[in-house]
């Protein structure tokens, strides 16, 4: 009886120790995965910053000027000008959008998924 109890306790202790070791190795493995994911995230953020810089550079009037005049074309400021607005005035939403936004979101989603109206088809004019 004493011997069997001793063996049982030893076995239990061994299992617990093994579980602890397993936990530690899993934590380390998780650490590697987190690190790899962090690297991917960092690379994405770096790429995003680089793209933002490229965008700012392209939008810069200095660079736009350079690309416009690269062929030696000469542009003149208009002698007179008009303001032409293609949409509704700034600050006011399009009526359809304003109407759409008044409906609850689930209703809008349902309408889009199952009850959406037929869209017009563009056809070639003969």
């Amino acid at each position: 009886m004493r011997t069997s109890r001793c063996i049982l306790y030893t076995a239990l202790g061994t299992v617990l120790c093994l579980l602890y070791v397993f936990q530690q190795t899993e934590i380390v493995k998780l650490g590697y995965r987190i690190k790899a994911t962090e690297k991917v995230l960092e690379a994405c953020l770096d790429r995003k910053t680089a793209l933002q810089y490229t965008l700012s550079s392209l939008e810069s009037p200095v660079n736009i000027d350079r690309s416009l005049f690269i062929n030696g074309d000469d542009f003149e400021m208009a002698k007179d000008y008009k303001l032409v607005r293609l949409g509704p005035p700034a600050g006011k939403e399009r009526p359809m959008l304003a109407k759409a936004k008044s409906k609850p979101i689930f209703k809008r989603l349902a309408m889009l998924s199952w009850f959406s109206a037929r869209t017009a088809q563009a056809q070639t004019v003969k």
Binding site: M77, Y81, K82, L83, V84, R85, P88, P89, A90, G91
Partner: peptide
């Protein structure tokens, strides 16, 4: 002066539709 004033006028004028109508 001409270009800067035109630019500032466009920036400050948020309601371009009305300006077009006035013209």
């Amino acid at each position: 002066a001409e270009d800067v004033l035109k630019y500032r006028q466009i920036r400050s004028n948020g309601d371009g539709g009305q300006v077009l109508a006035k013209v």
